[in-house]
Design a protein around this nucleic acid. Structure first.
Lengths: 195, 195
DNA sequence: CATAACTGCAACAGTGGTGTCTCAGTTATG
DNA sequence: CATAACTGAGACACCACTGTTGCAGTTATG
């Protein structure tokens, strides 16, 4: 009775089962983002599915959560690709990537939170890859004179993440991702001081 | 058998009991900052105290957590007072307050996290007071030309909080609070762009 | 120093979540 | 269309945590 998706050694799921998995993942995100300690029962209910079905697809809570973070990391990878951080002009890539990451974060706040706090999650190496590409982009930005030459890139990257995290909170979370991205990038580059 | 500290209607605790309360609060912070879902048992163990004693002082988990957040909010109040945000020069107050808040946050990361995420905690009105004073300080800073005239103060405040939150993470959390504060304020005012 | 307060320990019932199993009914798929 | 996969439902044992009580021994305090 193979449940884990550990290294694709399992036969592919039937189409409806695949759909179940998706539904459960999305319901879990909705429920856990409101109450991180919610029970499997509550998640199942939100997914419109029996609790046993959840356990059929995910051996335990941890497996479910790991699937969520893995999914989000995959989305982040896609988003990075779409932004062409290695080739596009730094400002453009920065804005593009920011807006798209915001989109992901708005839809998956819980999973994103985990990816960016739990250092020892199985999605950690994927996160590191994203970090590296982000860092490389910032280095390009600095070489272009967009950032101060003395800037600590690691700190800058963390500030960047923090700004993204902050942009989705509060009263302006309903704004267009592009508008939010504008604000984030502007703040990252210039702060709140006079121009 | 009065347990709650609700509105000081209870007889003052004996000196050793008072000490117990403190020990438990500090142990709870230590344990919960590592594992937010830790059991009362684990907290009691970390405090070097029987589990029943924890329950004697705090009716339930919620009461314990609320005591922690209340304590932290009180510390924040003190810190704000010490910074004289209404009278001292804005730059000075900003730096002073940042450094002191960092000190609090380093020692009480879990409770601080709650205060700044849970909007409906009983410490909410205390938090709002802190928010207001912070906002007033930023307004003074803007009037002094320290911030751009068009700056959205609410956004700036949230960025300020986020930067403080970020400063205590990562590899530099061991730095002097003053050095961290320097970095936070500098980033808040100028961002990462060229000067 | 006498008393009241505090503590540890052991035991207890209650609660809620977890993970598993079976089975009957439905649905996708070659 | 025959088969294999999937689902919901009910039931089950299990477990960890919670919150309370009683009691015997210790400690602060007037």
């Amino acid at each position: 009775m193979p449940k884990g998706d550990i290294l694709g050694a399992t036969r592919p799921l039937r189409a409806d089962a695949e759909r179940s998995v998706r539904t459960i993942l999305e319901a879990a995100e909705r429920v856990l983002s409101v109450n991180p300690g919610a029970s499997m029962e509550q998640i199942a209910e939100a997914a419109g599915v029996a609790r046993t079905t959840v356990h059929r697809r995910f051996a335990n809570r941890q497996a479910l959560v790991e699937a969520m973070t893995a999914d989000v990391v995959r989305q982040l990878d896609d988003v990075m690709d779409a932004g062409r951080p290695e080739t596009a002009p730094p400002v453009v890539a920065l804005h593009e990537i920011t807006a798209n990451v915001l989109r992901v974060k708005i839809g998956w706040p819980f999973a994103m939170g985990l990816v960016f706090t739990d250092a020892d999650s199985p999605a950690a190496e994927g996160k590191r890859r994203v970090d590296d590409r982000c860092l490389a982009l910032l280095r390009r930005a600095r070489d272009d004179g967009l950032l101060d030459a003395a800037t600590d890139l690691d700190w800058t990257r963390r500030v960047f993440y923090a700004l993204i995290g902050e942009a989705v909170h509060g009263p302006d979370s309903g704004l267009e991702p592009d508008a939010l991205a504008q604000r984030v990038v502007d703040t990252l580059l210039h702060g709140a001081g006079p121009r």
